[in-house]
Design a binder for these strands. Structure first.
Lengths: 225, 225
DNA sequence: ACCTGAACACCGTTCAAGT
DNA sequence: ACCTGAACACCGTTCAAGT
C-alpha cells in the first residue's frame, strides 16, 4: 500500500537491479514459452507427465498461471502436437511433384513426425489433429489426389484410407515399440540395443512405405476400371 | 477373537438371517461382475467416467476392493474392451468362406464393435488390443490372407494395412461424431437428430466398406504383378 | 480369502487477491 | 494485464486391519 516499499529483500535500488522500462509489457509467460516447456517435459518424461503442475514447474511458475494463456489441459496437447508437425509441414513437395510421390513423401513425413516422439503418436490417437500444420499436411495429400484421376467419391475414399493409415500406423508402431521395450526388460547392453533399435526403425519405415504403396496400387486399380 | 460374537446389529440369529452354508465361498465381487459394472458405467457416462471409485460405487463396494481382482485401472480398460469384442468374435465367417469376403466381414465386425460404443474406439487408440477376442478377430483376417496368394512379405504388409485401417477408421469415426455433436450444440429436435444420425451411420459404414475394398484392390493388383 | 478404511501423493480447475 | 495462493472436488494406489 505504501509507496516506495523495498521491492525485494537485500537488493539496493540501482540501474542494475531495477527492471528495464516497460518490462511488464514483456510478460514472463507466453504461449510459445508454454508450448516449448510442454514439449521439453514430454520429451524427457513422456505422455503421462503432462500435468498442468509439471508444465508450470518446468517454467518456474504456478500451475494456475497457465490458465491465462490456455483454457484447459487439452489445449496444451493440441498445441504441442501441432508444434511437432511444423517441421514436417515446412518441407512439403511442390505443386509440380507427381501425385504418387507427393502422397508418399507427405504421408511419410506425417508418420515420421508422429513416431519420432512416442508421446505425439499417443496423443494423436486421442485428440483430433486440427492444427494448422496438420491441416497443411492433410491438404497436400488431398491436392495430390486431385491429380490422381477418378471420381469425387473415389477420391474421398482414398483420402480417408490414407488418413486412417497414417494414424493407425503411427499408433500401432509406438505401441509395438513400447511392448518390445517392456519384453526386453533391462537385460541387454546399450550398444546392442542401439543397433537393433536402428534396424527396427528401418523395418518399420519399410513397412510403412509398403503399406502406402499398397493403397496407391488400390487407387490405380480402381481408376483403371 | 471371541467365538460366537454377534455377527451384525439388531438381527436375531435364525435360518433366515444366517448366510447359507459356504456363502463366503461365493464372494460378492468377481472379475465378471467388475467388467459388467465397468461396461454399464462406460455406456452410461462415457470414457472419462472410468475411475476406480466410480466402478466401485456402481457395484456398491469400496474402490480398494477392486484391487483384489485387478492390478490397475488399465486392466479394467483391457477387460472391458475385450468383452465388447466377444460378440464380434462369436460369429466369424467359416473356414470355407472365400478370402475376400472373409476379410470384409471380419474387418467390418471388428470396426462395428469398436464404433458401436464410443468409449471402445477411444480406448482402442490408447491400449493395444491383446485380449482373446481381439486375437480371434485378427487371426481370422490372417487366415483369410493366407488364402490370398502372394508372398509372405506381401501378406505381412496386407495384415498391417488392414489392422491400421480398422483402428484408424474406428478412431477417426468416433472423433468425427464427437465433433459433429459438438458443432450441432443443442439446437435440433430429437426426431431430426435420430434420422440424420442413422443416415450418418449408413454413410460411415459405406465409407468403411469402400476403404477395405480399396485395400483389397491393392492386394489383388500386387499379387497380379 | 475377501473386503474395509485410512492414508499418501497426487490431479484439473475456480476464483479472489495482489501488483 | 498478468501472476499468485488458497481452495474444491476429485484421482490411483498402498497397506494394515477386520472378518
Amino acid at each position: 500500500m505504501a509507496m516506495a516499499e523495498p521491492r525485494d529483500n537485500q537488493q539496493p535500488d540501482s540501474v542494475f537491479t531495477r527492471p528495464p522500462r516497460g518490462r511488464r509489457a514483456q510478460p514472463a509467460l507466453s504461449r510459445e514459452r508454454i508450448v516449448a516447456g510442454t514439449i521439453a517435459l514430454l520429451d524427457r518424461d513422456g505422455a503421462p507427465a503432462l500435468t498442468m503442475r509439471k508444465v508450470a514447474a518446468e517454467l518456474g511458475v504456478h500451475a494456475t498461471s497457465l490458465y491465462w494463456y490456455v483454457d484447459r489441459r487439452e489445449d496444451l496437447v493440441d498445441l504441442a502436437l501441432d508444434a511437432v508437425l511444423a517441421e514436417a509441414a515446412a518441407g512439403l513437395p511442390g505443386p509440380d511433384e507427381p501425385w504418387e510421390s507427393a502422397v508418399k513423401t507427405t504421408a511419410r513425413r506425417f508418420y515420421t513426425a508422429l513416431t519420432d516422439r512416442a508421446w505425439a503418436a499417443e496423443f494423436a490417437g486421442v485428440r483430433p489433429l486440427l492444427g494448422p500444420n496438420a491441416l497443411a499436411l492433410s491438404r497436400r495429400i488431398i491436392a495430390a489426389l486431385a491429380d490422381s484421376g477418378g471420381g469425387d467419391e473415389d477420391r474421398a475414399v482414398a483420402i480417408r484410407a490414407l488418413a486412417n493409415q497414417i494414424l493407425g500406423a503411427a499408433t500401432t508402431t509406438v505401441a509395438m515399440r513400447a511392448g518390445a521395450a517392456a519384453a526386453r526388460g533391462g537385460t541387454d547392453d546399450a550398444r546392442a540395443a542401439a543397433v537393433s533399435a536402428s534396424d527396427a526403425l528401418a523395418v518399420e519405415n519399410a513397412y510403412f512405405d509398403q503399406v502406402i504403396d499398397l493403397l496407391l496400387a488400390g487407387i490405380r486399380a480402381r481408376r483403371a476400371t
